[in-house]
């Protein structure tokens, strides 16, 4: 069970949420591509109050040589939270949480990047969370996809990170901080909007199969909306917003 604070009120009497959203409404999302001059590709994503910035470097020579793969590139993904990104300052450096998120994010992106195009090389994806308000791993995945596209790295599809969850026995899209802290379940997914495939999946809490299905439906709906914003950001970067 998440949180375990079942008696915290998270829904208004009219069924809306504390921030006024309906159950299937996501927080506002803004995306910019190509915002870091030193990187090959980069992206800035603001999702609710979350802010993630991603830089992509490479393909470059993979070293040390023992990490090289003869038939494909390796993706070197790091997810990191800035010390000032959370309510209480966090000490700089990796911890168990950031290592796990780095690993599953890398595996999500490996599922779409055409790694076989770059044997023996390395592509670095650096995810920096500057402000955290629940859902940063999803925002990081979305931002990483835009940054990889901005770097011109060929991909089968982009990946959209989005989560639904459960609060007060009600399935809702895109948990905010209070809902994440005091809710009953969280279901983050990495969705490929064109193929409809899933390349990232985690869950914790308590969901019935019906609730899982509804949460998944919400995630797919939101992924289509976020995908449009991702594409618009890349178009803005490369042809001044002309379709």
């Amino acid at each position: 069970m998440m949180g375990g604070y079942g008696d915290v009120k998270l829904l208004n009497d009219d069924g809306t949420r504390l921030d006024g959203r309906t159950v299937d409404e996501m927080r506002p999302v803004e995306i910019k591509a190509g915002i870091l001059p030193a990187a090959q590709g980069s992206a800035w994503v603001k999702h609710g109050l979350n802010v993630a910035v991603v830089a992509v470097y490479g393909p470059m020579e993979a070293h040390p040589r023992k990490i090289q793969r003869q038939d494909r590139a390796v993706l070197d993904v790091r997810y990191n939270m800035a010390p000032f990104s959370t309510s209480d300052r966090i000490r700089p450096g990796f911890n168990r949480r950031s290592r796990e998120i780095s690993k599953v994010t890398a595996e999500a992106l490996e599922s779409v990047v055409l790694l076989e195009r770059y044997p023996r090389s390395k592509i670095r994806v650096e995810i920096e969370i500057l402000a955290a308000e629940a859902g940063t791993r999803c925002v990081g995945i979305t931002a990483a996809s835009v940054a990889l596209a901005d770097a011109g790295i060929p991909m089968r599809d982009m990946v959209v990170g989005i989560a639904s969850g459960k609060i007060q026995d009600t399935v809702v899209l895109d948990l905010d901080k209070a809902e994440d802290n005091y809710g009953q379940a969280d279901l983050p997914m990495g969705i490929c909007p064109n193929t409809g495939e899933l390349v990232f999946l985690q869950m914790d809490g308590d969901l019935s199969i019906e609730e899982y299905n509804l949460a998944t439906e919400y995630n797919y709906k939101a992924a289509a909306e976020i995908h449009e914003i991702m594409v618009a950001a890349l178009k803005e970067r490369y042809d001044g917003g002309e379709a």
Binding site: A38, F84, L130, A131, E133
Partner: peptide
Amino acid sequence: LYNAEGSAKVTWGDTVVYAGV
């Protein structure tokens, strides 16, 4: 930045830096 008690972003030529308090 939400969560930082004070924050600033500086874009200086091709250099981009954030600070949070």
